[in-house]
Deep mutational scan, measured.
Amino acid sequence: MTYKLILNGKTLKGETTTEAVDAATAEKVFKQYANDNGVDGEWTYDDATKTFTVTE
């Protein structure tokens, strides 16, 4: 399945996607991606759209 991440960081905004077997796996990938890019904030997940959002 394809999962999407929306980044609403103070210095980085954008979107990315990943292929993962489940939401938990996608979340690990996205949290590492956000961490690597210096984005740390509040996370939400919408199962209907398979979209994670992180907002600083």
Rank of each mutant, 00 (worst) to 15 (best):
T11K: 11
L5I: 04
T2A: 08
T49L: 13
N35V: 13
F52C: 01
K50S: 11
G41V: 02
D22N: 11
T49A: 06
G38D: 12
A23Y: 11
D46L: 04
K13M: 11
F30I: 01
E42Y: 09
E42V: 13
W43D: 00
E42A: 12
T44D: 06
D36Y: 09
A34T: 07
F30G: 00
T16H: 14
V39S: 03
E42W: 09
V39H: 04
K28G: 12
D46R: 03
W43M: 05
T55A: 05
V21D: 08
A48D: 14
A23H: 08
N37P: 01
M1A: 13
Y45N: 01
T25H: 13
T49G: 05
K50P: 00
D46W: 04
G41D: 02
E15K: 05
T44K: 08
F52K: 00
L7A: 03
T49K: 09
D46E: 09
M1E: 12
A20K: 03
V54S: 02
Y33M: 06
F52R: 00
N8K: 10
T49N: 11
I6G: 01
L7C: 06
K4Q: 05
K4I: 15
E56D: 10
L7N: 02
N37Q: 11
K31S: 05
M1V: 12
V21Y: 14
G14N: 09
W43Q: 01
T55V: 14
E56K: 03
Q32G: 07
D40N: 10
N35Y: 14
T17H: 15
V39D: 02
T49S: 14
A23D: 08
E56V: 06
I6F: 06
V29G: 04
I6A: 04
V29C: 05
T2W: 11
Y45K: 01
T55Y: 08
Y33R: 03
N8H: 09
E15Q: 09
K10V: 10
D46Y: 04
T49Y: 08
F30L: 06
L12N: 15
D40H: 15
Q32N: 08
K50F: 09
F30M: 03
A26M: 01
F52Y: 08
N8G: 05
A48E: 09
E15C: 05
A24Y: 09
A24C: 06
W43G: 00
F52M: 02
K4W: 10
V39R: 02
W43I: 03
L12S: 10
T53E: 06
T2D: 05
A24N: 08
L7E: 01
Y3V: 01
T11Y: 15
T25R: 08
L5E: 01
N37H: 13
I6Q: 06
V39G: 02
K4R: 13
E27V: 08
E19H: 12
V39Y: 08
A23P: 14
N37G: 06
E56S: 10
Y33W: 05
L12Y: 11
L12C: 06
A34L: 15
E15S: 10
T55S: 14
I6W: 04
D46G: 02
T55Q: 08
F30N: 00
A34E: 01
V54W: 03
V29E: 14
I6D: 03
K10G: 07
I6E: 04
G41W: 10
A26P: 00
A24L: 13
D22W: 03
G41P: 01
V39A: 05
V21L: 14
N35K: 12
A20M: 03
V39L: 13
T49Q: 07
G9V: 07
F30S: 00
V29L: 14
T49R: 07
A34H: 01
N37W: 13
A23C: 05
V54F: 05
Y3S: 00
T2C: 05
T51K: 03
L5W: 02
T53M: 09
V54L: 08
G41H: 02
L7P: 01
L12V: 11
T25C: 05
D22F: 04
N37V: 10
T53S: 08
M1I: 08
D40S: 11
T44C: 05
L5Y: 02
A34K: 01
T11I: 14
K10Y: 13
E19S: 14
A20D: 03
T49H: 10
T53A: 06
E56A: 07
A24Q: 13
A48N: 15
G14V: 11
Y3W: 15
F30A: 01
D22T: 07
T53I: 09
T16P: 03
Y33G: 01
Q32S: 06
F52P: 00
T55I: 08
W43C: 02
T53Q: 08
T25A: 15
D40L: 11
Q32M: 07
T51I: 08
T49D: 06
E56R: 03
A24T: 10
T17D: 07
D22S: 09
T25I: 10
